[in-house]
Simulated scan of single mutants.
Amino acid sequence: MRIKDYYQILGVSRDATIDEIKRAYRRLARQYHPDVSSEEDAEEKFKEINEAYHVLSDQERRKQYDSILTTGDEKKYKDFMEYIQEFLESIWQGMRRAPKPKKGADIRLKLELSLEEAAFGCEKEIEYERWMDCPSCEGKGYMGQMEKVVCHACEGTGRRISGIFNFPRPCSVCKGRGFIVKNPCPSCGGRGRVAKHSVIKVKVPQGTDDGEILKVPGKGHMGERGGEAGDLYLRVSLKPHPVFKKIGKDLHTEVFISFPLAVLGGITKIKALDGTYHEVFVQPGTECGSTKRFKGLGFPGGDLVITFRIEVPKNVNANMRSILEKLAKEMREEGIDYTGGMINKILGILRL
């Protein structure tokens, strides 16, 4: 590997002070900055200038380099270059190049669905904010022809010295461009993009489950400089249902039946998630808490599971009470207050 003469690249002597090296770097960086220079090899020269400054501006690195330059040991120079390669890569990545198209960022939102919407599919209207090209400047960031001036902070180099290692980094004022736009778009402040309220319609497939993510291609933030738009990701969240509880693919619900129906058996009706009614045969002697499963009536791919509950009437008229008392006597129920005395006693206490 041929040893580069960094002193010659910067045009300084080998005993140059750090201030002389800095002045030489700034002068050459302004001259060969890719945004300023019209020379074909300006970018390569700009890289070499940054590489030379990176080595000579640090006392320890300069000492190692001077030793290699004196001996002409190419093997040591190769090892030295590998040692600083990580720093050099950082320089190249921070180099100002012609802006390239940049894909827009993705957007992630929560999509709440009812159990019916998720099970049978639907079309939902989504409202959200997304970055889009500024309509005033058509995404350029400036009006008419660009007017620019050399950045005062970095003197047009696009880089500033910072950090404990005096390492050149992209200028924070001009974002590494070396210039500042004089006529930025007043609508977007020179960003080229503005946040816009967007409304889109999304089709939700049948059987969409809780936690699933629906991808809507191209509906994220718009790209920069003609780059493709990002995507919109919707994470599904199912709302609690007033009747059904979803466990896996099955739907669970409670069906209240009367005491006579539970004892004698018979037919009752249940309403499925899709709104259809189905007859259910109640076995004689059905106990409270017993269950029954119906294939295919649950969430797509699941069943409907009903749990029987015995409904206790709150208001009992005289005829019903008489019938219940007869039943209780027939069943030899000893705890029943047949005279109503217990009720009168309770009412007397409440009046006190």
Rank of each mutant, 00 (worst) to 15 (best):
E39H: 12
E43S: 02
E43W: 06
E44R: 09
E44Q: 08
K45Q: 09
K45L: 10
E48C: 07
E48T: 14
E48H: 12
I49M: 08
I49R: 06
N50Y: 14
A52T: 12
A52N: 08
A52C: 06
Y53D: 03
Y53G: 05
Y53I: 02
V55T: 00
L56V: 07
S57M: 06
D58K: 10
Q59W: 06
Q59L: 08
E60F: 09
R61T: 07
R61D: 11
R61K: 09
R61A: 02
R61F: 03
K63M: 13
K63V: 11
Q64F: 13
Q64H: 12
I68K: 02
T70W: 12
T70H: 13
T70D: 15
T71F: 03
G72M: 15
D73Q: 04
D73L: 05
K76F: 12
D79Y: 14
F80L: 05
E82P: 00
E82K: 11
Y83Q: 14
Y83T: 13
Y83G: 11
I84R: 00
E86M: 02
F87W: 08
F87H: 09
L88E: 10
L88I: 13
L88H: 06
E89V: 04
W92A: 09
M95S: 10
M95I: 08
M95W: 10
M95L: 15
R96Q: 08
R97E: 15
A98G: 09
P99D: 09
P101V: 02
G104C: 03
G104K: 01
L109I: 12
K110T: 14
L111T: 04
E112P: 07
E112Y: 00
E116N: 04
E116V: 00
E116W: 00
E117H: 05
E117S: 02
A118M: 11
A119M: 00
A119S: 08
F120P: 01
G121Y: 00
G121V: 01
G121M: 03
G121P: 03
K124S: 11
K124Y: 00
I126D: 00
E127F: 08
E129P: 03
E129M: 13
R130S: 01
M132R: 12
M132S: 02
D133K: 03
C134T: 05
S136T: 14
E138T: 06
E138A: 08
E138P: 00
